[in-house]
């Protein structure tokens, strides 16, 4: 299955689409298992995410790679540094987070965000020129909590006519 950019990049191949109301512009992300890495995003100049601890269900690790300079960071949500991350060598959390980012967004988009060239079969981590650059976990962790908070929003109590502009579309294959 070839990965498609989440943006409807064919916007320009048909001039009508510039004067089109209903075409959803962002394709749904590809389904992936969330148990290990419940959250990953390309934001704030970083590929960043949250990795569930294998040993303690109440603990999570916040892992990130900066696009600028490939700074690696991994710590618990309480800012305790991850013991597995040393110098330029990524820990298992960073590896898992990057793998899931590739599953969710596609190799090409993750590589482009990190400003590296990656062949079809090689991994993103191998293309980086990383160094250890601890970053506070709080920002990413609070973004994750805000993400989870959507699941606590009750069902709408009436129709949302504005969603007519957002017709569902099939997941990129």
């Amino acid at each position: 299955m070839g990965y498609k950019d989440p943006i409807m990049i064919d916007l320009g191949t048909d001039g009508d689409r510039e004067r089109c109301s209903g075409a959803t512009l962002v394709r749904p992300v590809r389904a992936r298992k969330l148990a290990k890495v419940p959250f990953v995003e390309l934001a704030d100049g970083r590929v960043q995410g949250v990795v569930s601890s294998g040993s303690d269900i109440a603990r999570v690790y916040v892992s990130s790679v900066t696009a600028d300079g490939h700074g690696l960071s991994c710590s618990t949500n309480n800012n305790r540094p991850c013991g597995g991350l040393s110098g330029p060598y990524a820990c298992k959390h960073l590896r898992a987070m990057l793998d899931e980012a590739v599953l969710q967004y596609g190799r090409e988009r993750v590589a482009r965000y990190l400003r590296v060239e990656v062949g079809a079969d090689s991994d993103v981590l191998g293309a980086l020129d990383p160094h250890h650059a601890p970053a506070p976990a709080a920002t990413v962790f609070s973004r994750f909590l805000r993400h989870l908070a959507y699941l606590e929003v009750p069902e709408a109590d009436g129709p949302v006519p504005e969603l007519q502009w957002f017709g569902a579309t099939r997941t990129a294959g």
Binding site: R19, L25, A156, E162
Partner: peptide, 26 residues
């Protein structure tokens, strides 16, 4: 719901300045 969907599209399209075609009507 509307603002969240709209903002997500804008975010996905940044940098918009380099887009060849824009969804003007939408």
């Amino acid at each position: 719901v509307l603002l969240d969907g709209f903002a997500a599209e804008l975010r996905a399209c940044t940098p918009i300045a380099t887009m060849e075609h824009l969804p003007y009507r939408r």
